[in-house]
Amino acid sequence: MAFAGNLRKIIRGKKSLKTVEHIEVKSKIENWFFIIPLGMIFVCWEIVLKLNLISTETIPAPSEILEVLFVNLLTNPGFTISVLRSLANIGVGIFVAALIAIPFAIFTGLKSRVDASFTPLIMIVGALPDIALLPFLVYWFGRGASAAILMATIVAFFPIFFTVREGVKNIPKDYFHVAYIYKARKIDVYTKLILPAVFPQLVTGIRLAYEFLWEIVLAIEIIARIHGIGFIINFAVENGSLTYAFAGFFMIGIIAILLDRLVFHRLEESVRRWHE
């Protein structure tokens, strides 16, 4: 009887393992399903232009755009550097913002008095349109990467701060009791309790910051004419080369999709394994 039960358990265990793997493989493929409607849009777009319903003067054909992107632009080191500059503005902005926001958010999340004195102020500042600071930053730091990165840091600070602070506030009191009962050192309370507990919120905050930053960094490059892909798009449009402008735009799309699927989606999946 017991043997039969064990056997059943073993068989059932194996079965469920298989289904789990199956689901994982399926969801991995499903992550790329969006390519189908995207491809359909491109085909329609191409047909509309081939039928001369809209002139290629107004909007270039996707085939042309992709050709320019892969043949002319990606082989051009100047373009690649511009793309990397934009990515660096975003990346460094998020990194510096996280470095400041995480400790500050933990501190305010833990100490209600600090929270009461600082957070309303941060909320007011966060509600202001950050981009209005751009002229000042350009005035102080010139039209360069430092102004762009500083602007990006300011923009990225708020979503990371607020999500992490919320995460810290939501840590159940009993988690801390567990840490104290077993006499966790201060450093362990941070590294083995608070940081892993707020990791899901940190991922959300960084993702939000990243999404804001694409817009902000592009806007900075267009408005303040700081080097980067936004600058290239603007430059191409102003010089009448819509195909090149669209190619730059496509490049952003490709990077955004790759980062979303390869970085953020994976981070979120790793959290989803345990997050309730």
Partner: peptide, 26 residues
């Protein structure tokens, strides 16, 4: 040591890792 009504298990740790927590701290 103490057992809690809310269980107070760390959700990011597996069963083994949760049981090990007190020993790890020591």
């Amino acid at each position: 040591s103490m057992v809690f009504q809310s269980f107070a298990l760390f959700p990011w740790r597996t069963v083994l890792q949760n049981i090990e927590f007190g020993l790890e701290m020591r």
